[in-house]
């Protein structure tokens, strides 16, 4: 049975840190089985939007729901439906890839057998010889793969990504994007914060552009409002210039 509502629903959200208003009237929805790229200049409030979805920060007004759960009221309830990849992935250096996954899954209350874990690691593109190696010697891309494997193994309806491909080389970025396409096929609602316009244009179903605390521009991969990478790039630069000024 398809879910009644979209897994991610944000409506007219206003959020401030103290007196500094970050979001003012942000609305966003991410349907199941789709990828939305969230764009915007530095400090636009992209990470803050993810924080609100995870129940880390509380909005002043508006509504927010993760699979129908208000994360501010029931953070653990919301988090049960969310897999989250923070901006900088850091795992346990003195545990192996499999042990990291085993541990984090156990923490989430979603233990899985080793077979499933190594399958997940393989699906995330981690070479077999790295499975039982400690993370201490891993490259950034390898760590990212372990983290994404954990996120995918959790098989939750919502995936939040904060600049997942920053620092990855083009090859790793392409691998990662391919993986996201698979995840979408599983019916996951993916919200991906990114500065990588090409990736966004490549795989996102929708692109939301945050400016002045709200979604100032939205475009989809197909149809009338189909986005144009050049126009977006120009817009991005203008926004970046505004922030810098």
């Amino acid at each position: 049975m398809p879910p009644m509502t979209d897994p991610i629903l944000i409506d007219d959200l206003t959020l401030a840190y103290g007196t500094q208003r970050v979001l003012s009237g942000l609305s966003l929805r991410v349907p199941a089985g789709s990828i939305t790229a969230l764009l915007g200049g530095n400090g636009a409030g992209k990470s803050t939007t993810l924080s609100a979805l995870l129940g880390f920060t509380r909005a002043q007004s508006g509504s927010i729901a993760v699979c129908g759960i208000d994360p501010a009221a029931d953070p653990d309830g919301a988090r049960r439906h969310i897999a989250y990849l923070p901006e900088n992935v850091a795992l346990y250096e003195h545990l192996s890839a499999v042990e990291n996954a085993d541990y984090l899954l156990a923490l989430s209350g979603e233990r899985q057998p080793r077979d499933a874990i190594v399958e997940g690691l393989a699906a995330a593109g981690l070479q077999e010889q790295a499975w039982d190696q400690r993370l201490g010697g891993f490259s950034k891309g390898m760590r990212q793969k372990v983290a994404i494997a954990v996120a995918l193994l959790r098989r939750v309806p919502v995936l939040l990504l904060d600049e997942p491909t920053s620092g990855l080389d083009p090859r790793a970025t392409a691998d990662f994007n391919a993986l996201l396409v698979q995840v979408r096929a599983r019916g996951t609602a993916v919200l991906m914060v990114t500065h990588d316009l090409l990736s966004a244009a490549d795989i996102a179903d929708r692109i939301a552009f945050i400016e002045a605390g709200r979604v100032a521009h939205e475009a989809s991969a197909s149809g009338a409002e189909r986005f144009d990478v050049r126009a977006l790039h120009a817009r991005f630069q203008a926004g970046g210039a505004k922030v810098a000024a």
Partner: peptide, 18 residues
């Protein structure tokens, strides 16, 4: 300091209970 706190807290029961 290791940069894991946010990821842990984002897990269900990854905060206080942990």
């Amino acid at each position: 300091e290791a940069g894991r706190q946010r990821m842990l807290e984002a897990l269900p029961n990854g905060g206080r209970a942990l």
